[in-house]
Design a protein around this nucleic acid. Sequence first.
DNA 1: GGATGTGAAGTAGTTCACAGCC
DNA 2: GGCTGTGAACTACTTCACATCC
Lengths: 231, 231
Amino acid sequence: MATPRLRSKKLSEPTIARLPVYQRIAEGWSHRGQKRIDSQQIGEMAGVTATTVRRDLAGLGSFGTRGAGYDVGVLTERIAEALGHDRHYDVVVVGIGNLGRALVNSSNFLIRGARLAALYDNDPSVIGQMVGGHEVRALSDPISPATVGVICTPASAAQDVADRLVGAEIHAILNFAPQVVTVPLGTAVHYVDFSIELQILMYHLNNGTGPLGGGVLHSLGLASANALRGS
Amino acid sequence: MATPRLRSKKLSEPTIARLPVYQRIAEGWSHRGQKRIDSQQIGEMAGVTATTVRRDLAGLGSFGTRGAGYDVGVLTERIAEALGHDRHYDVVVVGIGNLGRALVNSSNFLIRGARLAALYDNDPSVIGQMVGGHEVRALSDPISPATVGVICTPASAAQDVADRLVGAEIHAILNFAPQVVTVPLGTAVHYVDFSIELQILMYHLNNGTGPLGGGVLHSLGLASANALRGS
DNA sequence: GGATGTGAAGTAGTTCACAGCC
DNA sequence: GGCTGTGAACTACTTCACATCC
């Protein structure tokens, strides 16, 4: 009985952030016809040490082969399992400007179980358009049931949109707007901020320190949660 | 001798990632006419503890007032100083599709010292268009001198573009393409992956743990900044 | 031989608790 | 009273080093 959906031992936050990176590397490897990969190779491409890779993967169970590394197929499968990629969930996107369109049409955003459920905007010239196979609805319409809401509006609209998403029982929000939003307890908000990446890069350039080696890959997840509304 | 551009004591990686968040909070506060803010308030909005905020800010020098918190103006100024926002640097963007346009037109990307130097694409119907005040050039043209190169192409083009950027003496790359690229030693690649945020969010939803936890979360109020860093 | 997996050691980051100052 | 700034304690993560297995 191979892995009966074990209540996986809790993975550390840094590990969780690295697993998708390993997975992409494994997939690229597989694409080029390679059948096996070792921790040294993964580490080089991901910009971490081989030991870190081995510890991360050991947390998913022992599926490597001593002397021969990891089977690329098993590797991707185990990571998918750990991250819950077998489960499907619905995503609504609010704000269908350049960014919203880029996300919806990207081959890299709505993957691994994510399903696009509906699109919303408040611009009459955008409402009714077909984008990514969905008709853009009015923001004033009832929000479709979903697991995750993505905010791609200007900062000024972000709080209102967050309120609507929460009102529609959506408790996980990915916010691309440069605006801190307040939500009730029990709702998670992850912020994605393009400029922060640039700022971190510049800090290191200015100070000479930090990730400047070859093939450095930096992935930043800044999760913030749970402020009480009012008071 | 008030801070004569000190060779600032090295800040920790998590701290560096949090500073831009604090800065945005401070700016929002200032926008709403508030003059002071305390570590408790910053922490709530950023999703970290007040102690963490104080320790982060103490690393920039002691500019808080006991009993009264931080002056919002001084706060933003000190963070800007620490992150090198007074210095200007040039950015080239390659791949002017939806994402490239979204970034270039965003009020949140090219800020804090970043200056748009040039845009490139290889699609004849895009070359020559004006985007964000710049004419899109052919990818085969010589790359303009710059500090940072941003890759917004499909995965298949990413490695070629990275090679061109490196050839143009650009040693800092922000890669939005879902593709690991290899570069010579001395070049930093930061990898931004939208889907990773979604995957992390889903991991926590599936496992009940973490920044979403069913009810336990208030006690954590926790955020996480994860960096994969290389040698 | 060669690479995994893991105790043990080391390092980095966070939180506690409180002295110090407004 | 309130809130900052910081040594001390604690926790989490990474790295070392090597036994283990193919």
